[in-house]
């Protein structure tokens, strides 16, 4: 027996092989293709328009949200506008967020906010890009509303008993961004340097801002 006979589900690098997607298209994949082809055929949209929209979606990243948070950290008047109307404040910074209705939630020493969509996977994609896979799992969606502290601890975030946890379920038309607490020792950093400390998870509320290195 060759040694690899026992491990033929692993690549030579020791990682499992990813299964090829040889299965037939699902019903909804067929529907999507049919709908797309019809829309193009009838001149409602074009293949170029679709490709450019995909590019636009792919270009959105948590860096946009991080820039908004960093601005809020350095500019109290901007932070006030952000808390008043986060959509307008994001547009003010030049981000094209479409029709996104955004609410900013400020973390403080006493309050920690965390965001979920229990019904599906609502997420401020126009500002933060695509959501992480775990955000869409049944485990995260069902558990974070019931035992948020346990879930946050699994993300490495142990909150003191004195902190109030506020969970926000995106059940309808609003989307949410958390403004994490600005870390100590960042007084002399520029807005651009500060934005580097703002992780995606810190804007969902499953993490906090990184410490300056």
């Amino acid at each position: 027996m060759m040694p690899h006979d026992h491990h033929d589900h692993l690549s030579p690098s020791g990682h499992p092989y990813r299964k090829d997607n040889d299965e037939p298209l699902t019903y909804w994949q067929c529907m999507e293709i049919a709908m797309r082809e019809l829309l193009i055929e009838k001149g409602v949209t074009t293949a170029t328009e679709i490709a450019s929209q995909i590019d636009t979606m792919d270009a959105r990243s948590p860096a946009n949200g991080a820039a908004v948070v960093a601005r809020a950290w350095v500019d109290p008047a901007f932070k006030a506008r952000l808390l008043e109307n986060a959509s307008r404040a994001s547009r003010e910074m030049g981000f094209d967020i479409g029709t996104l209705r955004l609410i900013a939630l400020e973390n403080t020493e006493d309050i920690h906010n965390v965001v979920v969509c229990t019904l599906c996977s609502c997420y401020p994609r126009n500002l933060l890009g695509l959501p992480p896979d775990w955000y869409k799992t049944r485990a995260y969606r069902s558990r974070v509303v019931k035992e948020p502290r346990k879930v946050l601890a699994e993300f490495g975030l142990e909150l003191p008993a004195e902190t109030t946890v506020r969970v926000h379920d995106s059940t309808a038309d609003m989307r949410y961004i958390v403004i994490p607490v600005r870390p100590d020792g960042t007084e002399n950093m520029t807005e651009e340097e500060l934005a580097e400390l703002v992780s995606r998870d810190s804007m969902i509320g499953t993490g906090i801002a990184k410490l300056p290195s």
Binding site: P148, K150, T164, D169, S170, M174
Partner: peptide, 29 residues
């Protein structure tokens, strides 16, 4: 009209919740 409603964890999950005073907000029509 859409309203953001804030619930206490105690109200939603009863007394065996982690921290009764933690809250849960949701948008309700």
């Amino acid at each position: 009209p859409l309203v953001r409603v804030r619930f206490s964890m105690a109200e939603v999950w009863g007394s065996d919740t982690e921290y009764p005073n933690d809250t849960l907000d949701a948008e309700i029509f």
